[in-house]
Write a protein that binds this DNA or RNA. Structure first.
Length: 354
DNA sequence: AACTCGGGGGA
DNA sequence: TCCCCAGAGTT
């Protein structure tokens, strides 16, 4: 491996072929940090609109530090992994209070911020500050497993260290940003998981896997185990022009997000039985219970099978984690994708109010 | 080291 | 279907 030549080929290609992405138009470490958090386990095309809205509404450390959690989650709605948003704000508040609003530029300091792990630390340091630090994500492991013919299982946690060491040895000290981004851009555009475009690859000559004809056998990755199932009833309960909404607990799946009141079902039930079940849980009675939809929502580790119902009630004092809202107020509550599916079913049915 | 945590796009 | 995505926190 001619390290010098590899760096030059990679960086030269990146500077010529890189995509025009919103976060590549800023040098602000705060905004680059935002992009890196959003990009965790999330595709570029998905992130773009979220990133634009986010930096428009919260352009500075101060603005995000002062934001209400509900408006923060509303901006994050649909992007998933909602703890990222809360951790980001916690980290930003630390920067505001402990670092005078300046994102720190050493690995030790930036890694101490909430939500900033080994990858994000290296990404912000190299891209925003030009520090030659490794930033190893899934792309980098795939690309380097091929280039260096590394056959260790990339699903194992400790394997990441092997790649961090490799990057530390290979990284350009003249342009760490282009080097790290070049590896990731190569993974996204050329050195893809299936059918890599080796004939278009700018570093093909340096690639041991291509040389050995093993590019499709790498990386080695053991399979993830499959997920569980759970059944739920979700009921839109109207009282006059108000809907009953429930906030999920502050920890765990979809923490803090809002939903139509849900109950986990241990056995399949009829519509009239749903009414009794909720009456017990809510300490208020339902009428006109009607099933309006059924759908499945797949999370990475779990699948929800949801039956959606419509019902009426006399307004009653709800439990602590619930409140009555008008349709207008509902628009300001952060809801996750499965709840959005129910909301869409309601709207398409035409039962907007009453 | 294993598990949790979202959602969507592409093969 | 299954994979995988610019991963991090918790246990």
């Amino acid at each position: 491996m001619d390290k010098q030549q590899f760096q030059q080929d990679l960086i030269g290609w990146f500077q010529k072929e890189q995509r025009d992405l919103p976060w590549r138009r800023t040098a602000d470490p705060y905004q680059i940090w935002i992009s890196e958090v959003m990009l965790q386990q999330t595709r570029v095309d998905t992130v773009i609109p979220y990133y634009k809205r986010f930096v428009e509404k919260f352009p500075t450390v101060e603005s995000l530090a002062q934001a209400e959690e509900e408006s923060l989650l509303k901006l994050w709605e649909g992007l998933g992994y909602y703890s990222r948003a809360r951790n980001l704000q916690a980290g930003v508040r630390e920067v505001a209070e402990q670092y005078g609003g300046i994102v720190p530029s050493t690995r030790k300091e930036i890694s101490s911020l909430k939500g900033v792990g080994p990858y994000t630390a290296g990404a912000v340091l190299s891209i925003a500050y030009g520090v030659p630090e490794h930033a190893v994500d899934g792309n980098v492991m795939r690309v380097l497993s091929r280039i260096l013919l590394i056959e260790e299982d990339i699903a194992k946690p400790k394997t990441r260290k092997v790649f961090e060491q490799a990057v530390t040895e290979l990284i350009s000290h003249e342009d760490p940003s282009s080097f790290n981004q070049g590896l990731m851009e190569l993974g996204a555009l050329i050195c893809t998981p299936t059918s890599p475009k080796c004939l278009l690859c700018p570093v093909r000559d340096h690639c041991e896997a291509f040389h050995a004809g093993k590019e499709t056998e790498l990386p080695v990755k053991t399979k993830a185990k499959k997920n569980r199932n759970a059944d739920f009833a979700m009921v839109a309960i109207w009282s006059g022009n108000k809907l009953l909404m429930e906030q999920r607990p502050g920890k765990g799946l979809l923490a803090g997000m809002w939903q139509y009141p849900m109950l986990e079902l241990t056995a399949p039930l009829e519509a009239d039985e749903i009414g009794e079940l909720y009456a017990e849980a809510l300490n208020g009675s339902l009428s006109d219970v009607e099933k309006i939809t059924a759908f499945k929502h797949v999370f990475s580790h779990l699948t929800w099978n949801v039956d959606g119902y419509l019902a009426k009630a006399e307004e009653f004092t709800p439990p602590e984690n619930m409140k009555w809202v008008t349709p207008e107020q509902l628009e300001n509550l952060p809801i996750a994708a499965p709840v959005q599916k129910m909301k869409t079913a309601l709207e398409q049915r035409g039962d907007v109010a009453k």
